[in-house]
Each structure stands twice: as C-alpha cells, then as structure tokens.
Amino acid sequence: MRKIDVHGHLGVWNFPIPGGTAENLLRLCHRHDIVRVAISSVLALCYDMHGGNAEVARAVSEHEELLGYVYCNPRQLRESIAEMERYLPLAGFVGVKIHAGYSATTNGDQRMQDLMAEVAQRARVVKIHSDGPDAIEWIGRYAERYPGLAIIMAHACGGAYQEAARMAARHPNLYLEFCSSWAGAGRVRRALDLCGPEQVLFGTDMDLLDPAFVLGSYADAAMAPEEEQMVYWDNPVRVLGLSL
C-alpha cells in the first residue's frame, strides 16, 4: 500500500546506522512503498539550524520523494522567522519542525510560546517533539489558540500517548504519529479508538529508525482497510496539503 511518511530526517546519527544520506532515505522509501517522506535536518536539530535547513532544501529540490520541514529553534526566534520566510515559500516545503528536547526549551516555555505564535502566522503544519511539564496541556492550548495550524505530536508524545489521543479528540487540528523504539502492544489501536483514524498519521523517523520496525507497530493495530487508507495516505495528503 502506498504511504506518506510525516516524520523523517536527513543527516547522521552517532549510532551504528549506515546511512544519513538522501539516497538512503530513497532506498527505504522504495523498499516500503513510501511515496513521500517529510524530513527535517539532524544537523539543524543538534547544532546548526541554518546549515541543516540548507541541506534539507538541497535534498528536497533534487528528489521529489522528499518533502521539507523548516527546523525552528525557540532559542533563536529572529533567525527562525527568517528561516521560515526563506524556505516555506519554496516548492516541497510543507511545514515547520520543532524539537523541545534538542532545543532544551519545554512546550510551555515563553520562548516556545513566542515561536508558536510566529509559526502560526506562516505555516500550515508544525511537527513538535514535546518535552516538559504539562507538555500535552500546552499542545492543547496551542491547538486552541491557532485553530488554522495543524499540530503533529511527534511519537504521539511517547508514553503519554493516551493523554495525547484524548487531547486530539478535543481539538481537530491535533494529529499523532507513532514512530518509536517502544512498540508497546496495542498502543496504536488504543489511540485510534480514542481520537479516531482521521487524526492519526504515519511516521517512521527514518533513517534513525527502520520503517520495517515502525510498520510493525502500525500492523499491530490491525487497522481496517479504510483506516489504513486514512492513516497511510488520505490524512497526510490533507494535512501536508499535497496534490498527488
């Protein structure tokens, strides 16, 4: 079945993973019938926002399978605005990526609030890796403040996925995706039942994680064909604003 992956990365990790290139992402896409993958830069997450976003822009311009997230760092608000204005108008860029952990800025931090306000003015989608106390409560507040912004909760907020799914049930602009090393049995199924398949997306975290592993987590949910169609294709097409 054709799929669209809302969570990928370009760049190297300090683990025994041969890859880190656009070519490796394409290899994994082809192996698992992933037609598009939206990526953010590992370099930007870990060290250099400007350099990382430039690498993503180059890869997106060269490979139609790759879509781009502009990485924004709440500690660099002015620069993040400039990055959004530079890259979001370009073909292939679909939204913004924020990582509360790598930026050491919790979901409720004033700097995160300021960044989210700027993102909401410029982007249709933000994918956020959450962190901090009341992280999901803060996601709910952002969903309420910015109803026109689709907010993807990366990794479905980990162990708090049920709380995340309940929050999504209250806000139609919240979405969950389930890439994780922790493939807890029944996790995706419970979330589908809590918030409905319209708000669940397919994400792999490639090429940190192998799509084969994450597809196993989704397979564990024993989705009906119409649920698979929504999760793997219809929802990401709608949320990312794709014309395929």
Binding site: G184, D210, A212, V214, G216, S217, A219, D220
Partner: peptide, 16 residues
Amino acid sequence: NSPEVAFEPAYLMGVH
C-alpha cells in the same frame, strides 16, 4: 518481547 510489546516490529526487521 511479547506480549509486552507488539510482535511485528522485531519480526519485520528480520524479514526485511
């Protein structure tokens, strides 16, 4: 690590 986690992720890694 069943039944604590889903069976398929580790299995599909071996398959692929």
